[in-house]
Design a binder for these strands. Structure first.
Lengths: 230, 230
DNA sequence: TCACTAATGTTAAGACCACTAACTTAGCGA
DNA sequence: TCGCTAAGTTAGTGGTCTTAACATTAGTGA
């Protein structure tokens, strides 16, 4: 079990330096003074090792988000911290981020369902909590538009929410949480790929704009009835 | 030159089937009944070939967007067509999309500036046009919030706009265009990675929600003064 | 016509890489 | 002591990119 940890540790080092492509079993065993074949006692093949690393990385993100120091400031500040924290983690661990969100490594049917989805839900829960705490702090200018959409998607959201232990949140919060999640990753992934440099406007300021839009949309939601604790 | 085309053609076939990782020079020359070394007459190495393919793929997306049949319907319908068209292209060419937006292949300093940025600008221009045509169709509920942000970022946007031949657009339109771009890719990249399946709510409906939010934000912008042609 | 050149190949080889089969070795429980 | 299992080994197969040196061909200027 300790050997497994050492293998993963070395593989993660390779990822940090050169991304998933840079992971080579030869390099790992060279570092461990082991014969190449020995590695197959611990992982079925290279892909299995990478899948494990995807799982670990996903959980590290979730841990980081869960461990954010919240509660001290206002709900608005907390939401800000969560949004910016997600981006910060990605910028500090670009190759780990790419491993999770820009590869198809862990996409195997049952692997994803059993291991990846829980990790994803943990991250999402942090965002949902932060969003719900901000709702209803401003008159609901956007509600009209959104409610029209909710009619068609409310069932799906309700199903997802109930199945994920999120029954206490309105479909409006759930919908905005999903959009927040995709918007975050939109900026982050383009930023990491260098696709925003052409615009001259830095990713920083663009991110500020998006954060502001999310705040504004959250504030215009009807107030959350429960779970306003933090 | 025709040989170059054949090489790229075969490489693109490999990408379509298995992504960038599946591109192997051996496989290409095998298909062409050539010796492996001959390939280096046409490309410096494997990365140079891939960089060329990134460039081609990016331009194909731009061509596709530019070639969309617009103008027949209303401005709102046109914006819809552009947004949904982007996603459709990605879903129909998932591996080409990943090649562009989820690899760091063409990130070489001068290569990106000289070849990739023009292609990116072409795609972006389509979106900006469609957005500008929709502005001012509703009272400006969101302007207050955005204008506060514009103060801090307006210079950057102005610089970018002027340098890219987009002087006629307001910074509001430019900002929303950038956010639209990142939001599109946020949903698309998570969808392609299978990261939205956990939510139960389909990517389709989530995309609808985002499109609606973009429409709504565009409508609340001050009317565009020029370039209202289509 | 003839030598020179450029384009376009080739063969051969080096240095990696993932992975497999077969064998060894050490420890441990019955 | 016997047999089982965990954790290694060596040796080898077949795949990969890439380079160096050599071969062929077509065209071109003198």
């Amino acid at each position: 079990m300790q050997t497994v940890q050492e293998i993963k540790q070395l593989a993660m080092d390779q990822i940090r330096q050169g991304g998933a492509d840079a992971v080579t079993l030869s390099g790992i065993v060279r570092e461990m003074s082991m014969s190449p074949a020995a590695l197959y006692r611990y992982f079925a093949n290279r892909d299995a090792l990478l899948a494990d690393l995807v799982f670990d990385a996903y959980n590290e993100l979730a841990d980081w988000l869960t461990g954010l120091e919240l509660g001290a400031g206002s709900a608005v500040k907390n939401l800000d911290a969560v949004l910016r924290g997600t981006r910060r983690w990605a910028l500090e661990h670009p190759n780990a981020y790419r491993l999770i969100f820009q590869t198809t490594i862990g996409s195997g049917e049952e692997f994803a369902a059993d291991r990846l989805i829980p990790a994803a839900s943990r991250s999402m829960a942090v965002i949902i909590d932060a969003l719900a705490a901000v709702t209803g702090q401003q008159e609901a200018t956007l509600v009209d538009n959104r409610q029209r959409a909710e009619v068609s998607v409310s069932e799906a959201l309700r199903t997802w929410g109930d199945r994920s232990g999120l029954s206490e949140f309105s479909t409006g919060v759930l919908a905005l949480a999903l959009l927040t999640w995709t918007r975050l990753h939109g900026i982050i992934s383009l930023e990491l790929g260098g696709h925003l440099t052409a615009t001259g406007i830095g990713a920083n300021t663009l991110f500020d704009l998006e954060v502001q839009a999310i705040h504004s949309q959250a504030a215009s939601l009807p107030p959350a009835t429960k779970h306003l604790s933090h």
